[in-house]
Amino acid sequence: MDRQRVSEIAHRGHPIAAPIAEESVRGLLARALPAAGGRVLDLGCGRGAWLVRAAEGRPSVRGVGVDLDGEIVARGREDVERAGLGGRVVLHAGDVREFRSPDAYDLVLSVGATHAFGGLAATLDAASAYLAPGGSVLVGEGFWEREPQQATLDAGFGADEFHDLATTVERVVADGWIPVHGHISTAGEWDAYEWAWTGSLSRWALDHPDHPDSAEVLETARVHREGWLRGYRGTLGFVCLVLRRVEG
């Protein structure tokens, strides 16, 4: 089974494709969105969960999302319609690096999608091109809670893939951004995300024993679960930052 299909199944039990609880998502959006609402752009939107939550209860919010996975975007459009937000939230299938818009946005999101641009700094550079004066960026990125040991590297990470939290924030500030709010995912948020991820895959495989990919999906869940529990649990952290630039 291809990677995008695996990801779609894995996230069925956790609509936010990151280790962040529902209340944390809504808290971040409350801090990041202008009081008067405005335009929101999500680069790497998945099914548009952040945009739906940004627009719910805020009639003045208009959202645009872009994601490479056309199947996930199609499912996201169904979510948007079910939420009664058709016309206010629009999702596009395509490469975020090639997306172009004549509009400026009051909030640009990219949570757990910095790999699409080649890293955090490149993601912020891309986001700044769409930002309206006084606007904010909400970015979510991994960091090392502690020095990664061999078990973490064996789970598929590079030692230089992330930095510690202080260094991550310092690099953002050095690029001209000012953190105005942040959220560090708790151990509970991480555990809930990982159990949902591996559990959704395992449940699908057990419910479809005759599917040709069933055994492969069950093994994918097992390998991921072992990599989490024996590898990066307590080592890999996740931080969401609300950032602004100094005007003038």
Rank of each mutant, 00 (worst) to 15 (best):
E56F: 00
E56Q: 10
E56N: 00
G57K: 02
G57H: 03
G57A: 05
G57T: 01
R58W: 05
R58E: 05
R58M: 08
R58I: 04
R58F: 07
P59D: 06
S60K: 15
S60W: 15
V61G: 01
R62S: 11
R62V: 10
G63V: 06
G63H: 08
G63S: 08
V64E: 05
V64D: 01
G65P: 04
G65F: 01
G65K: 01
G65Y: 01
G65M: 02
G65A: 02
V66D: 02
V66P: 06
V66F: 08
D67T: 01
L68Q: 11
D69Q: 02
D69K: 01
D69A: 13
G70K: 07
G70L: 07
E71I: 09
E71A: 15
E71S: 14
I72D: 09
I72H: 06
I72C: 13
I72K: 11
I72A: 13
I72F: 01
V73P: 02
V73I: 06
V73Q: 00
A74S: 09
A74P: 10
A74D: 06
R75L: 10
R75A: 07
R75I: 00
R75W: 10
R75T: 00
G76W: 01
G76Y: 03
R77S: 03
R77M: 05
E78M: 11
E78Y: 04
E78I: 12
D79T: 06
D79R: 15
D79Q: 12
V80N: 05
V80P: 06
V80I: 14
V80D: 05
E81R: 15
E81T: 11
E81D: 13
R82V: 05
R82K: 15
R82P: 11
R82E: 14
R82F: 12
A83G: 10
A83R: 05
A83N: 08
A83I: 06
G84N: 10
G84S: 11
G84F: 11
G84D: 10
L85Q: 06
L85D: 02
L85K: 04
G86K: 15
G86A: 15
G87D: 09
G87I: 04
G87R: 07
G87F: 07
R88K: 15
V89H: 02
V89P: 06
V89C: 03
V89N: 03
V90I: 00
V90D: 09
V90L: 03
L91W: 00
L91N: 01
L91M: 03
H92A: 12
H92K: 14
H92C: 14
A93R: 12
A93M: 07
A93F: 05
G94Y: 06
G94E: 09
G94F: 09
D95E: 12
D95N: 14
D95I: 10
D95G: 09
V96R: 04
R97F: 09
R97V: 01
R97D: 07
R97L: 13
E98H: 12
E98Q: 15
E98I: 03
F99P: 11
F99N: 10
